[in-house]
Design a protein around this nucleic acid. Structure first.
Length: 814
DNA sequence: TGGATCTTTTTCTAGACAGCATGTC
DNA sequence: CTAGAAAAAGATCCA
């Protein structure tokens, strides 16, 4: 189909596409147009990655906007939100406004309601629905990218429920769902009342195969010699083969040496493989490449001063790299960019890269096809869909003649099994996971709190609009889970279930069969829902805070009857007893409280950790909020300990412990620290709201603990670190120079400030300006030479900030 | 005695969304 | 109930 023949799109689009070199639509795209994407028709497009899904979405959104509407593009990852934003910004020249909204980032320049196209994560959209964003009603088109993720147990239900809510909010909403090729795309189409475009057409051919012994067995039945040299591992042989230039029968260069993407099943394996493959790659590098790689390596070392950072830089110098979630954001971006620029020849990655941003490669090697799964008790094979997603990264459009995806077999039996299991196999069908309890807990509360359902029957009626309902005939299970969760939510004072009296009964349609029918969220329930907390997390936090309040009140009055059951009873007693002192809450207690909620992904206990943290627990038990579970309640006790480990990491961070010390002490990567800190920040923010809602005196302490993790500083730096441009390092340097807070910074002698900031004039001016200094100019100011500039690890410093020296600090090791 | 190399035992395991109000070194 | 790569520890050999 010629781009001139597109119905319903803006006038400028055909020319714009031609300028991009697009004259004709790909077959699946044409199919989508025939099915009516540009005319408001609902579409499910199940087509491979890189076969032009984005254009299908753009056609739908641009034609919707051309009709005076507004479009929403839902992505599964924040990183994809920014990738799509960059892509859609090409339309700004035609007067369209693009907005982005994710948890950590919201595009500036006006309200989202004024944008024509908004890009957001599914959770963010859910949150917008819960908080009643008025512009959602103006939507005329929603695109859901990677919609096969409704199959995901944790996050799938959110997408499913959110789509159902958006469609109920606006019955005329055009829904475009983009999916990988899956077994049951027709079921998705039925659910969404959509036309189905199901195709495995690709713009570049993808050849799948399995390597075994000295040969690569290709899916068309052919074999190619691919020899493994002396001490080499099969993966290295495949990578080496990819690096070699390809010639055709006449000796013409067909394809210069290409890059490989190797998928493995653990971070450690990724790092080890990258280190080893460096020696495979190095001989193939030109000297210019080596020089450029050295620059990238230097940048990597600059991102963070940790072992991970060093290891990555060492590998990159050799033209190899690893990629996993323990990397800092900066690391990831540097690796992705260097790989796209073809500077780095091999990336060894965990699944981060299969689901993440677009990083195609000439060849993909799926080295490990099983992955450890504790809940299943051992190694589990990857799903066909997942392996196909990895393999789909092979072949860069317009650059490679074809892509190759290679699985690695270690025995003849495995060779056969891999062909059966992955090469020939179709992806498994996508199944809704909505009926799982954790998902129901959250979404029932949200659905009631935001008014989508006001009764049990209304709730069930709403749930009928989900994929789950369309996939099951067995309604009993859903009803059972709903009732269990309603009971749970009522018991925790998030919901009220009424209707036992005659009035409510006659109002409900079901005329008495269901005596308790009417549902209403309590004020607490509304708070929990709009904070986006799992109700179980909220309950844990509330219990912890109340427990503290109770024991604090008990310690201020000699007698107490204990046994408070409600917040108001507690408040009465506390009024009689006098205020509880928020200073008795230790930061560790609060970090532990949020670390043990289901919203925090806890650290893993390794061998030896158990004893270590049992000791720690014994020493600091009184700082923790709530009763320690008995050692005989195995699971709960284990959780308690790993929450303690997580809390200790947060405490270290808030005690200004160096990044590399933390990564070493807890066996995590720099990216994990950020992740934990970010989650803790969010949960403590939520805890702060809950603390004032339930009327405890803890809010101030929670707020301080939050600010301390946010900036990674001790108590005395909280005020300074709040100044824009001042983080944990600069705040500490200013403090050591005698500047204790924001006010003192405003009045401080400029030479002292300049010296404390290590002579950086620009930085000093910025800092002074942000602190509200009348005349921040540093012109002609010389750093005060009496100021000692700290450059050391705070561990080596005692309370007064005096250097204690090596020998003394090493005593602490015993 | 030291070290290089080979062999056995032990260890350890993917990912990442959200509030709110604005910005690290 | 299930695996397997890599790190750590142990064993062997030779100068």
């Amino acid at each position: 189909m010629d781009v001139a023949d597109l119905p319903g799109v803006p006038d400028w689009l055909p020319d714009h596409l031609r300028d991009d070199g697009i004259e004709e639509l790909y077959p699946p795209q044409a199919e989508a147009v025939d099915a009516g994407v540009t005319q408001g028709q609902n579409i499910v497009a199940a087509i491979p990655t890189a076969s032009g899904k984005t254009l299908v979405a753009e056609l739908a959104m641009l034609s919707a906007v051309a009709r005076g509407g507004k479009a929403l593009y839902i992505v599964p990852l924040r990183a994809l939100a920014s990738e799509k934003q960059a892509e859609f910004e090409q339309f700004e020249q035609y007067g369209l406004e693009i907005g982005v909204s994710t948890g950590n980032y919201e595009s500036d320049g006006g309200w989202l309601g004024d944008k024509d196209i908004v890009v957001a994560t599914s959770e963010k959209v859910d949150s917008l629905v819960r908080n009643d964003a008025p512009w959602l009603e103006e939507l005329t088109c929603v695109v859901s990218d990677e919609v096969h993720l409704v199959d995901d147990g944790q996050r799938g239900p959110t997408l499913e429920v959110t789509l159902a809510k958006l469609r109920r909010l606006n019955p005329d909403l055009q829904t475009v769902a983009l999916s990988a090729t899956i077994g049951n795309a027709d079921e998705l189409a039925t659910w969404l009342d959509a036309e189905l475009v199901d195709s495995d057409w690709r713009p570049i051919e993808l050849q799948k195969g399995v390597h075994y012994g000295q040969a690569l067995h290709v899916e068309d039945g052919s074999q190619r010699r691919l020899a493994v040299q002396n001490n080499e591992k099969p993966t290295a042989a495949v990578v080496r083969d990819t690096l070699q230039d390809d010639y055709d029968e006449d000796g013409n260069l067909v394809e210069a040496g290409g890059s490989s993407l190797v998928f493995v099943n653990s971070r450690r394996n990724a790092e080890a493989a990258a280190g080893r493959l460096g020696s495979t790659v190095r001989p193939h590098l030109t000297s210019e490449e080596e020089a450029e790689l050295a620059d990238v390596a230097a940048e990597i070392r600059g991102v963070s001063d940790t072992e991970t950072s060093d290891d990555l830089a060492d590998a990159v110098e050799q033209g190899a790299a690893f990629h996993h979630a323990g990397l800092a954001r900066g690391h990831r971006e540097l690796v992705e960019d260097a790989f796209r620029d073809r500077l780095v020849k091999v990336v060894c990655a965990t699944p981060t890269l299969a689901a993440g941003v677009n990083t195609p490669s000439r060849r993909v090697v799926v080295r490990d096809w099983r992955r450890y799964d504790g809940t299943a008790g051992g190694m589990q094979p990857l799903s066909v869909l997942e392996v196909h997603q990895m393999m789909g990264r092979a072949g860069r459009p317009g650059m490679d003649p074809y892509g190759e995806a290679v699985l690695v077999a270690n025995s003849h039996d495995e060779l056969d099994e891999l062909f059966e299991r992955y090469v020939w196999a179709d992806p498994e069908p996508v199944r809704s996971k909505l009926a799982a309890e954790p998902a129901m807990r959250t979404h029932i509360l949200a659905t009631v709190a935001s008014g989508f359902a006001r009764s049990r029957s209304g709730l069930l009626e709403f749930l009928e609009e989900t994929l789950y309902a369309s996939q099951t005939d067995e309604t009993g299970r859903l009803e059972r889970v709903v009732d269990d969760m309603l009971t749970y939510l009522e018991r925790n004072e998030f919901l009220e279930i009424d209707g036992g009296d005659g009035e409510a009964r006659s109002a409900s349609k079901s005329s008495g069969d269901e005596p308790r029918d009417e549902l209403d969220a309590t004020s607490l329930g509304h708070t929990v829902s709009s904070l986006y907390l799992d109700p179980m997390s909220a309950a844990e936090i509330i219990d912890g805070l109340r427990d503290w309040q109770r024991s604090a009140a008990e310690s201020t009055t000699a007698d107490s009857d204990g046994g408070f059951t409600t917040a108001s009873e507690l408040a009465d007693e506390q009024a009689a007893a006098g205020e509880a002192d928020p200073d008795d809450i230790s930061a560790l207690g609060l970090y532990h409280l949020v670390s043990r909620t289901p919203d925090m992904y806890q650290l893993y206990l390794r061998s030896g950790d158990r004893e270590e943290y049992e000791m720690e627990l014994y020493e600091r038990e009184d700082e923790l909020l709530g009763p320690t579970p008995s050692e005989f309640e195995d699971d709960r006790f284990e959780d308690w300990l790993s929450a303690l480990k997580t809390a200790r990491l947060l405490e270290d961070w808030a005690d200004e412990v160096e990044e590399d010390t933390i990564t070493e002490r807890y066996g995590v990567g720099p990216g994990d620290i950020r992740g934990k800190v970010e989650t803790a920040e969010w949960l403590l923010g939520a805890a702060e709201s809950l603390a004032s809602e339930i009327d405890t005196d803890a809010a101030r302490a929670v707020s301080e603990a939050r600010i301390r993790v946010e900036h990674g500083v001790r108590e005395e730096l909280v005020d300074l670190a709040g100044v824009r441009g001042v983080g944990r390092k600069r705040a500490r340097r200013l403090f050591e120079a005698g500047i204790g807070d924001r006010a003192e910074l405003r009045d401080a002698a400029k030479p002292v400030v300049l010296a404390a900031l290590r002579g950086r004039r620009k930085t000093a001016e910025n800092v002074l300006e942000n602190a509200g200094h009348r005349d921040p100019s540093m012109e002609g100011v010389e750093p005060d030479s009496d100021v000692d500039v700290l450059d050391d690890d705070p561990r080596d410093r005692d309370e007064d900030g005096v250097e204690t020296g090596e020998d003394q600090s090493s005593l602490g090791d015993f």
